Computed example of a mutant assay.
Amino acid sequence: MIGLVSYGVYVPSYRIRVEDIAKQWGENPANIKSGLLVEEKAVPDLDEDTATIAVEAARAAIRRANIDPNDIGAIYVGSESHPYAVKPTATIVAAAIGAPTSITAADFEFACKAGTAAIQTSMGLVALNKIKYGLAIGADVSQASPGDALEYAAGAGGAAFVIGQDNIVAEIEEFASFTTDTPDFWRRDLQKYPEHGGRFTGEPAYFRHTISASEALLEKTGLKPTDFDFAVFHQPNGKFPRKAAKTLGFTSEQLKPGLMVTHIGNTYSASSLIGLAATLDQASPSQRILMTSFGSGAGSDAFVFRVTDRIEELRERAPKVEEFLLSKKYLDYAAYAKHQGKIRM
């Protein structure tokens, strides 16, 4: 039985409200908030980046289950904002947590689903009994061009999951993926900010892939939406996951515990993973969770998790997602621009 042995999250404490961004660009904040269903987003501190966020999430995961770092055989970090073009984030995490030099490590990129790709890769090594534990991380400090629609939701955060076969808090019962070549969102080399393909971002990209992967998983397992207690989808905004859930037959009650975008924005590679962690913070033994990620370019990975009795023992050993939501400090647009490196001298 392969599953999640532990999990950990980190979200920066700084926030900026949608109103403060809208004011800067002369936009109507009420229209933007109702259109995106986002109130505010997380902003990294001046000394925070994808690597530091990944380290903090990994440390939380290790602490929650009292994992010996020497038992970790693989570390994979998924992100689209790695701090170095040539220098892996995974090795920084490995050194920070005290992992052995015998590990295999790599950085993953697949827009916002690189973290779930890391989970799948870790599952493979664990299933082959080549490693005891794999550490899969999704972390991002999302970037958006000043004044672009993406700026209202592009947030920051990370989630880490330890994958193994023993003492698991949630069994991974099955997974399915759906992948195509769809140019909905991209950033070329040496470009600071990404671009998006307008009409490609909705139906051809997010909805087609998210729904197709989820339907493939339901067909593969013979499960129905009513067989799940919770559902988590990638959250570029608040409307898309709600529409995807409704299309598939899931209810707002199943979706609500993992819907974090309203409070911290779209954390890209961490988006569905933080939603999963928030759901695990509330879930009871034997409850079932569907999680489907989405990454532009484009692809989705869908998973079925079955929570075990061990969740009750580990849940309180590391900060819950709700604690990060409550611990926050607000920035005005000038301070936000400084934190995000939008002002260059």
Results as ranks from 00 to 15, higher is better:
D45N: 11
D49F: 12
R15L: 01
I32W: 10
I21E: 08
S34E: 11
P44C: 10
I16V: 11
E19Y: 02
K23S: 14
N31Y: 01
T50D: 09
E19W: 02
Q24S: 15
W25T: 09
P29G: 12
R17C: 05
V55Y: 00
E39L: 07
V43H: 04
D45A: 15
K41E: 15
E19Q: 10
A51P: 07
I21M: 06
V55G: 01
W25Q: 09
W25E: 13
K41G: 13
V55Q: 02
T50A: 10
D20M: 06
V43I: 15
L46N: 04
I32F: 14
K33H: 04
N28S: 12
G26A: 05
A30S: 12
P29W: 13
L46G: 00
V38E: 09
V43M: 09
G35T: 03
P44I: 01
V38P: 02
D45T: 03
P44N: 08
A30H: 06
I16Y: 07
E56M: 00
V18Y: 06
I21C: 10
P29L: 10
D49Q: 13
E27V: 03
K33Q: 13
G26H: 04
D49A: 14
W25V: 12
G26T: 06
I21W: 11
A54T: 04
T50W: 02
Q24H: 14
G35L: 13
A22E: 13
D45W: 03
P29Y: 10
K33Y: 02
I21Y: 06
E48R: 04
E48W: 02
P44G: 07
A42L: 00
K41V: 11
D45R: 05
V55M: 01
E27C: 00
Q24P: 05
V38M: 06
T52Q: 10
A30R: 04
R15F: 02
V55K: 01
A51C: 10
E56I: 00
K23R: 09
I32V: 15
S34M: 09
I21K: 08
S34K: 12
R17N: 13
V18K: 01
E48A: 05
T50M: 05
D20A: 07
E56K: 12
T50I: 06
K23M: 00
A42P: 01
E40G: 07
A51F: 12
D47T: 08
K33V: 12
D20E: 14
K23G: 12
N31V: 04
P44H: 07
E56W: 00
A42K: 05
D49R: 14
G26D: 09
D47Y: 00
I53T: 14
D49E: 15
W25P: 08
E48G: 09
D45H: 08
G26K: 05
I53K: 13
